[in-house]
Simulated assay, not measured.
Amino acid sequence: MNRLAKYEAHDGENKTEIVFGTPKTKNSRRTIPLTRTMVDELTRWKQQQAQDKIRAGDKYTDDDFIVTNEFGHYIEQKTFKDYYDRMLKDADIGHFTFHALRHTFATRALERGMDYKTLSAILGHYSVAFTMDTYVHSMDEHKRREMDKMDDMFGMRYSISVENRPYPVLCTLSPDGCTAHVPDFPKVTAQAPTLDASLLEVKQQIEKALRQYKNPPIPTKQEQIVVPNNSVLVLVKAS
């Protein structure tokens, strides 16, 4: 479902329209197993829709959509995003794109031992290699945290100093501004109107994160980071 510009729009008419079509790739049409918790949530939601249908009566439209309003009508992406942004604001947990939920799922799945091939199929990626390239940095951070737990057993000290070493920052540019995140600190992210502003905010977050680490992560090498077409890689040194 997409809202696209009309080829012919008369004066006074909406210049865009909702268009339904097939998914853009073969992998987009796939079966995704659900967790028991999600099945329960969807069951409760279906019961809510049944109540909405009774209350709305003849005004209810049942087109088999899952994400609907109280009249059974689909909710388009922009409206759904507005709801999502409002929930983030009410929860006071900062700004994250809706796509970040997908990344969170993938990272947690790998941390819990899901293999790359299975995860790649669930995500609909065109290759397992793409999945590995996309999420290997998140796994590196997880492996560092897990290895820290071994210090007491082996009496090891973290001998590699990260002082004065810059951390790579991926900055994604868009008409709304710049979104920056740090592969070595998955929770560090910032969005600002300009590149400079987002980098300044990220720098402050890195400094704060370093104060909380007993053993700070070693900065990932530049050549190990895949930079998307609409992004730039910037090195940021904490003071």
Rank of each mutant, 00 (worst) to 15 (best):
P183L: 00
D184V: 02
R112G: 05
H137K: 12
A129P: 03
S120E: 05
C171H: 04
E111N: 09
I122E: 10
N164L: 02
K187N: 15
I122D: 10
S138W: 05
D196Q: 11
L199D: 00
K117V: 00
H181E: 13
C178H: 06
S138L: 10
K187T: 14
G113Q: 05
S198R: 03
L199N: 01
G113E: 05
R145D: 08
C178R: 08
R165K: 12
N164K: 10
C178S: 13
Y158T: 14
A190D: 13
I160C: 10
Y167W: 00
R108F: 08
D152C: 05
D152K: 15
D115G: 04
L110F: 08
G155Q: 01
D196L: 08
T131C: 09
F185L: 09
T194H: 07
V182W: 02
T134Y: 11
D152V: 03
A192L: 02
I160P: 04
K149N: 07
D196G: 05
A197I: 01
V136F: 07
V128R: 06
M147S: 11
F185D: 13
G113Y: 03
L200F: 04
D176V: 05
R157M: 06
G177W: 00
T172R: 11
F185M: 11
T189N: 15
L200C: 06
A197K: 15
D133T: 09
M153T: 15
T118I: 07
G155S: 02
P175D: 00
A109V: 01
I160M: 13
T118E: 07
A109D: 03
M114L: 14
T179R: 11
E141S: 09
D184F: 02
T194C: 07
L110Y: 06
V182D: 14
L119C: 05
Y167P: 07
Y126T: 15
T189I: 15
L110R: 10
V169A: 07
M150R: 11
A180G: 12
D133F: 08
S174V: 00
F130T: 10
S159W: 05
E141N: 06
K143D: 06
V169C: 11
L170P: 04
G113A: 05
A180S: 15
M150P: 10
K187P: 08
L119N: 07
G113F: 03
T194D: 09
V188W: 11
K143M: 12
P193E: 00
R145G: 06
T134M: 15
V169D: 09
A129I: 03
C178V: 14
T179H: 12
P166S: 12
V162L: 02
D133M: 12
I122Y: 12
H181V: 13
A197W: 00
V188P: 13
H125G: 12
T189S: 15
R112Y: 05
S174K: 02
P186V: 00
H125P: 08
L195H: 10
M139A: 04
Y158E: 10
M139Y: 01
V169I: 03
T118V: 06
N164R: 14
P168Q: 03
T118L: 08
T179K: 12
K117E: 01
V162G: 15
M139W: 01
F185H: 08
S138Y: 09
M153F: 13
D140M: 07
P183M: 01
D151E: 12
E141R: 14
M156S: 14
